[in-house]
Computed example of a mutant assay.
Amino acid sequence: MDGIHDLGGVQGFGKVPHTKNSLTYKPIFHEDWEHLAYSLLFLAADHMKQFSVDELRHAIERMGARHYFGASYYDRIVIGTATLLVEQGVISKEELDACLGEDFQLARGYSSPGRPAPPERPPFEIGDRVKVREEFVAGHIRMPAYVRGKEGKILHRTSVKWPFPDTIGHGDKSAQMQSTYHVEFDVKDLWGSAADDGTVVVDLFEGYLDRVAVAVKDGDIPSKQAAKPAKETALA
């Protein structure tokens, strides 16, 4: 779905303040309670095995607009975790209300069962031109809307595979394991001629991509030998 967090290219937010922080390390937590949000998340997801990280992402996406924008980053983690624990029957809404002393507002319920990954295909190689699928998916998806339908170039393929988000994000443990790719896009292809020059690299699951056929000129013969180095460095 077009998630509430998916704001790339959205107008009306003004200039995004940004500072380069490559030489210094800033505190991860800004309030004393914030580390407890992460502790609660990993206790429930890892130790108790109650849900996956993609299920948490989906729970946060299920928050209403006012609820989401009125909450801080770590507030959203607490709300998403609490929502999933209630849905799993680990804790009740009444117990949460009693602890808070008022109504504990949870995320909304599921609106979609999710979907399986597309059938497996040969992997993409470094240098391949790919196009992001033009898909409008109900429920959880980790394909940013601003790259939907756009063409880019493969820079890297991971050697490790992860569960397909559109499946596992809905609690379906049968999710197909997939590689992800670093895909480079031209900024002007994403946001038009008024954008600055440059490129954007987006990590995308294999199931979100299709190969772009490369036109062969008359007299050109594709060389298997020429393609060999790209194959050898695909997992570098």
Rank of each mutant, 00 (worst) to 15 (best):
T158L: 11
L190Q: 09
D196Y: 15
D6Y: 08
Y74P: 06
L96S: 12
I221D: 08
R121N: 00
H140F: 05
Y68I: 14
S112Q: 04
R108S: 12
T83M: 09
K217L: 15
S112E: 02
T158K: 14
K228A: 06
E87M: 11
A234R: 01
P113T: 00
E135Q: 07
Q178P: 11
Q225V: 15
T199R: 01
D46I: 14
A213Y: 11
N21F: 08
R62A: 03
R142I: 01
L96H: 15
D189P: 05
H156Y: 13
I4G: 10
S72C: 08
K188E: 12
A98D: 13
L85T: 13
P144G: 12
V147W: 06
H5G: 08
E61D: 08
S111M: 11
Q50C: 02
G64D: 04
R57P: 03
I168N: 06
L7Y: 11
E184H: 12
G89I: 10
M143L: 10
M48L: 14
S193D: 14
D186H: 04
H170L: 01
H140Q: 09
L209R: 01
V201Q: 05
A213P: 06
R76Q: 12
K26M: 00
G64S: 04
E135R: 02
T83Q: 02
S179Q: 01
V90Q: 04
I154Q: 04
A45P: 03
L23H: 14
H18L: 14
M143D: 05
D54N: 07
R157K: 02
D197T: 10
F13M: 11
E102N: 10
K231G: 12
L190K: 07
R129V: 15
Y181A: 04
I141H: 13
S111W: 13
L23W: 11
L209I: 09
V130G: 14
Q178M: 02
H156Q: 13
H58G: 10
D166I: 08
P163S: 06
V200I: 04
K15R: 09
G139T: 05
R157W: 00
E206K: 06
